[in-house]
Design a protein around this nucleic acid. Sequence first.
DNA 1: ACCCAGGTGGCCC
DNA 2: GGGCCACATGGG
Length: 217
Amino acid sequence: MPMDILLLLKELEGTFDTDGWWPAETPFEVMVGAILTQQSVWEKVAQVMDVLKGRGLMDVEPIAECDLPVLEDILRPSGFYRQKAFRVRYLARHLQERYASDPLLMLSGDLEKVRNELLSLPGVGNETADAMLLFAGNRPKFVAAAYVSRIFDRVGIYRSEGYLDLQRFIETGLPPDPVTYRSLYAHCVHLCKTMCRAKPRCDDCPLAPDCSYGLRR
DNA sequence: ACCCAGGTGGCCC
DNA sequence: GGGCCACATGGG
């Protein structure tokens, strides 16, 4: 029984509320979070971002002008704190110098051009760039994260040969709609975290019994 | 003690 | 273009 993307999405939608999946008050906060969450857990990201906010640093100019050691000290709990401090500040300085400190000014341009510009920033690879486009800019770019790859693989929809390959497969199989992209992405990640990883068996998973994620990745 | 986490970049072949 | 590795802290 072959499963396609739309069927999977229909299967997943409504299984949990994706509203507020990427909590943030501003596009800049999303962009910072996209860097901080790399190889980390959201609880730690939220924790350090609270500190940033408490110190009035959660904005382009304050970050751009912040001393590295200060930033490093705040970011420590989220891991890779030295690189992340440099990269977050680099991003802020880029926005300040080129876009009058307005993230949406940058994110609203030609989709592929913006994407390439994001990729040129230190610490911004495919997934981070796409997360910024989708969740900060509300642009139709799918975030083809490892979780998504695992779900698509295990359910038998598609075995991808890499990030861009999976992204292309999904983007050509769905309408270019940010809401749809966000929903599929959030459901895949949520599914892996709550069902596949948390339990030895996936009996309560909406994908059971077809999904064999429990066999490990 | 081990494994994982909402990746990226640099180096090697 | 793929396969390793460092990057770092914190929680299960």
